[in-house]
Write a protein that binds this DNA or RNA. Structure first.
Lengths: 394, 394
DNA sequence: TATACTTCTTAAAGTTTTTATAAAGTTTAT
DNA sequence: ATAAACTTTATAAAAACTTTAAGAAGTATA
């Protein structure tokens, strides 16, 4: 790639993370000199990709000219998959869903047709939008599993890399676009770091409360993925003597006492045992997603039984968090993912476990917070993944 | 600092880590262009800091001219403190102890005179060596405790920062040299990464088996210290239901089942209870350091009782290591510090715990190794700390 | 209201990198 | 065996980028 193209991309990336920027801010962030930045910004204005946006207030000197990005300049295809359901969206550089979020069933397991179906859906979405493909900078895919980002392989779902070619190869060929995949929890962490509650924080742990309990880490301002991309297997740290068999084959994993699945189980058991609750009479409907939402909603409205359940789960998450804090001394721990819908209810029990299991000096230095991005996080993260790679191409 | 001085330092640092280097290797590592490197190297040769060292074998093209550093060009003052004993050494750029290692008692606790004593010892050592102070690039100090590297503060020992000035300020003033401090376990990790078993590995966990169990981490090729410098509090992760009170006030910490102190305790108990062993009849002498060494030596020679004790401790360390591996997916786990004298005896029990408590895919990707640096590690790390900072000055 | 102090912008001077070319070796093909 | 093709290292000239300096535009203070 030509060098001036490279500089343009670096500048565009900054506009992806911040709406309005001056030349000197850009120079500072990118680490390139002002003359170079100004020249490149002027080129981008001529190309109608950036536009002038008036003068910022003075910070004690001459007022800087500011710029914004043309909202229709660039787009990203963002995909978020779980075991059963896939969501996708064509996102503008301003993080708006151009055509809304498309949601459809697409089982990850035992589905030989998965790559073909995904490609077709993606192409159809682009076609429907009418947006020129040259404006789409890539496809970002988030999914559960053991993923090696650099190789583009998801080891947990072998059908995603047939005949020696990975899902990245396949989708890339089908769409003609650069494709990147990463673990769902890592992408949620990336989203929180770039757009959410972990913004500007050098060190954050992002807990993905979902059907399992995932962990994405931002360490020294970088997403940390481990030596093979497998870091963050929070779900399976051995923490309990409960003799409960985990999906991974071991027993006593954090997951056996903390996921939303456990929450649901406990709720069903409690109701069966006659506990009083404001849960709807139809509970449990058998539809896990809806049932869990009911529980969180009831808790949010003050239902004693559900609050208690959340507290139990939260306390156990907190025990795991205490370990994280001892090892990594983060600035903050963000509770995110599906489960973050229950909001601040998580904070007290997690904090309680921390107080009991952490050295005070450590506990004092890390804040527990709940995500405001919620279920959007993963799609945002997939998009951000594309942008992170945008500047490294060729 | 002038720019060419900066480039010289970058080059000298590479020679600290590698003995013989060619210009193109330097260019590659430092990330500066070959013409610039060659010009600067030539300057350094003229100044008699570098010297030519013949031609390296060809790797398929013209043979590169190589260079080495003048062994008497630069020196570093290296200090390693524990609760009771302090070691220090004036080290050459080749990591040789110019005057040997000086070891003396200097209690960290309740010792108002500590800074004065340390300064005097340091100055005396320099004087005795006869080496010109201008050749000493700085003082590196390793010690236990909660240390904020950037501020130069050790929060665990308040007498180290009296009247608003830190130990760094004081020693720096007394010696006229740049001074840096860091946590002992972090420095051991740094030493292993630069000179020991963790060399060239992107991600390593270095376990410091000593009176506690410390942890230093190399993540993505950088020493990771956490948001406030407190990362690596491995000793105090809550892992056992043993009701044993820990020095930190909590119970069930890893430390209550794993340190060399526990090893000693268990040995004493066993002997009292009449267990047969080849430990010397004088055991226990009451001198912890010697007694622990006796145990490790006996184990090394095959004494059943002592091997068994090490296995118990090792297994418990392994349980902690399993957690580390789930969270951080390192390339390797290095067993270092005092305890590494027991050598390979640690590996089997640690590996055993890993096999039981780790997801196989994770366990398969990380190697357990024992340090060869041993008790030297911390002094090497303190010196390396100075060099890491050498390039960042002014 | 003038003066001092910021910060932003631009032009010129100074560095560094890139590109092109030469030099020195290795490997492959006939 | 010997040339041709390919690598890698070293150096010189051109291009690119950064730094410095000076001017422009604004704020804070006496």
């Amino acid at each position: 790639m030509k060098k001036d193209e490279q500089y343009k991309r670096l500048i565009l990336r900054e506009f992806y993370y911040s709406n309005v920027l001056s030349a000197s801010e850009l120079s500072e962030r990118i680490g390139k000199s002002l003359p170079l930045i100004i020249r490149t910004v002027n080129d981008l204005v001529k190309e109608n990709i950036l536009q002038e946006s008036g003068y910022a207030p003075s910070s004690g000197g001459r007022r800087p000219a500011t710029y914004t990005i043309n909202k229709e300049a660039l787009y990203i295809l963002s995909v978020s998959m779980d075991q059963l359901v896939t969501r996708m969206s064509l996102m503008s550089i301003e993080n708006r869903h151009v055509m809304g979020i498309e949601k459809f069933e697409l089982p990850l397991k035992d589905n030989p047709d998965i790559i073909k179906q995904l490609s077709e859906r993606l192409l159809a979405l682009v076609k429907k939008s009418g947006i020129c493909e040259s404006k789409i900078i890539g496809v970002g895919i988030g999914m559960p599993g053991f993923i090696d980002v650099t190789k583009g392989v998801n080891y947990s779902f072998p059908q995603l890399h047939s005949d020696g070619r990975t899902i990245v190869d396949h989708i890339s060929e089908a769409t003609g676009l650069p494709v990147y995949i990463d673990n769902d929890s890592s992408l949620i962490a990336l989203a929180e770091y770039r757009f959410g509650t972990a913004q500007k924080q050098r060190n954050s742990m992002v807990i993905n409360i979902g059907w399992g309990v995932g962990l994405g880490m931002v360490l020294d301002e970088k997403l940390f993925r481990g030596n093979n991309g497998f870091a963050g297997e929070f779900s399976h740290i051995p923490l309990f003597n409960n003799n409960k068999l985990c999906s991974c084959g071991k027993s006593g994993c954090l997951e056996t006492e903390t996921s939303l699945l456990v929450l649901l189980e406990k709720a069903v058991q409690g109701i069966k045992a006659g506990r009083i609750s404001s849960l709807p009479p139809t509970f449990p409907t058998g539809h896990s997603e809806k049932d869990v939402e009911s529980i969180m909603e009831a808790a949010y409205k003050g239902d004693n039984f559900c609050v208690e359940l959340l507290a139990q789960i939260g306390y156990n998450i907190g025990r795991g968090v205490a370990i994280l804090i001892h090892i990594l001394n983060p600035r903050s721990v963000i509770l995110s993912g599906r489960g973050s819908l229950a909001g601040k209810l998580w904070i007290a029990p997690v904090q309680q476990a921390m107080n009991e299991h952490c050295i005070p000096r450590l506990a004092d230095h890390t804040a527990i917070e709940v995500s405001t991005l919620g279920y959007e996080a993963e799609l945002l993260g997939s998009a951000a993944l594309v942008m992170e790679n945008f500047i490294h191409q060729k």
